[in-house]
């Protein structure tokens, strides 16, 4: 088995995560992600008690909220931390392919 992921595999992950990586990092991730995968694959050998799974250590079921309106933000508050806006709209560079 190869000891590293291909560039394409790492590029795919970087694209999914929207993390831009340099050539050095590419090298590093090709090896490191493979190492982690090898480590992770070992859990296939773990023998389970049963088929039950735990998403989180919840001690309660979801309590459903009444359909009643609560406080909302003014558009001014919405824009408080927004890097770019136009009027009350939040602005981003144009999104193509719509």
């Amino acid at each position: 088995m190869a000891d590293r992921l291909t560039r394409e595999e790492v590029e795919h992950v970087a694209k999914l995560a929207r993390v831009e990586i340099s050539d050095d990092e590419m090298e590093k991730y090709q090896v490191e992600l493979k190492q982690i995968l090898d480590e992770v694959m070992k859990i296939n050998d773990v023998v389970l008690y049963d088929d039950e799974y735990m998403i989180a250590p919840w001690s309660v079921d979801s309590e459903l909220r009444k359909d009643e309106v609560g406080d909302m933000l003014d558009a001014k508050d919405v824009l408080e931390n927004v890097p770019r806006h136009s009027g009350n709209y939040i602005e981003v560079p144009v999104v193509l392919g719509e």
Partner: peptide, 13 residues
């Protein structure tokens, strides 16, 4: 909801 205006897209949440 997004609306395209020239070279920007405007977002309304």
């Amino acid at each position: 909801k997004s609306a395209h205006r020239g070279n920007v897209t405007l977002l309304d949440f």
